[in-house]
Design a protein around this nucleic acid. Structure first.
Lengths: 156, 156
DNA sequence: TATTGTTATACTCTATAACTATA
DNA sequence: TATAGTTATAGAGTATAACAATA
């Protein structure tokens, strides 16, 4: 080979079939997105996993812990620790219902409500920044396709 | 069991703006994809990160370690450990070039070549399984959009 | 001084399995 | 017996910062 200078090599590698691998592209895109999240929101004390959990519980109060774990693809063992952390922080409350005392139902505390509300704008702003790289059409296509892959969202 | 109520709760949560968040959907889709990767390929001793690295080095021999880290969005500190592991496994060789003795250039060993070659079919099969959930059109749209987001692939 | 890669520490998340308490 | 959640351990990946060698 030896046809390439170093900066050319920097710009465009040969990925072969990997360039058409959904899994690989998802991985790269997701890591980029996390970087962007931290750039925008780490100063506000937000972590993607924690904020997502609080957000979803806020919209679905009384949700069972296991249901949440399955929906967010978080492993039960990790969910336990995540919930403990957010309970300690005063954002989340746990309630064991009478009809099935094995389970745990989650809700935001007033402090949790306030925390989500105060970060809501920053989160939506980040959301908008992610859209910036795409046209409106592309954005709709992408969210629809990812929604189809994940079973989330779909026709709203 | 109050099965009806549980199924309903299980099926469709309210995600609010999160259902249209590219970052959130990427995260869920990517976790699913990793699960699928492990189902198909963990028996072959493949891990996504390691196989990707070997694959790309195989297609771009003499690649600099730092270039690879930036392209694959792997942090330098982690890249060092990843490379050490693959060198120990006998799949990767390191060479310090004369013209810049700070840098490291990577190539597959014969063992590494054989390893990638022997897993190539299983990897392409996994790749095909990921496509199965989408029509050809949707697949092309998705890879094109992710390619645009990541700067990988694009017009070949 | 800046860059390349290494080392070290800490944290997040995942994988797995054993455990409890309920059903 | 099965299910919901917990605990414990190991590992993969990331963030951060300090560091050595080289440019």
């Amino acid at each position: 080979m030896a046809r390439a200078a170093e900066d050319l090599e920097e710009e465009r590698l040969d990925y072969g079939a990997l360039a058409e691998s959904v899994g690989f592209l998802l991985r790269i895109a997701q890591v980029q997105s996390f970087d962007m999240f931290f750039e925008h929101l780490s100063a506000k004390g937000l972590k993607p996993g924690e904020f997502t959990l609080l957000w979803v519980v806020g919209l679905n109060p009384g949700l069972r812990q296991g249901t949440l774990a399955r929906q967010l693809r978080i492993k039960p063992a990790h969910m336990t620790k995540l919930v403990q952390r957010l309970v300690s922080a005063g954002y989340l409350s746990r309630q064991v219902p009478e009809d099935d005392r094995r389970s745990v139902r989650l809700a935001l505390t007033p402090g949790g409500e306030a925390f989500v509300a105060s970060r809501r704008d920053a989160f939506l702003q980040f959301h908008a920044a992610e859209r910036a790289a795409l046209t409106d059409d592309e954005f709709r296509q992408l969210t629809a396709l990812l929604g189809k892959l994940t079973g989330i969202g779909g026709p709203t």
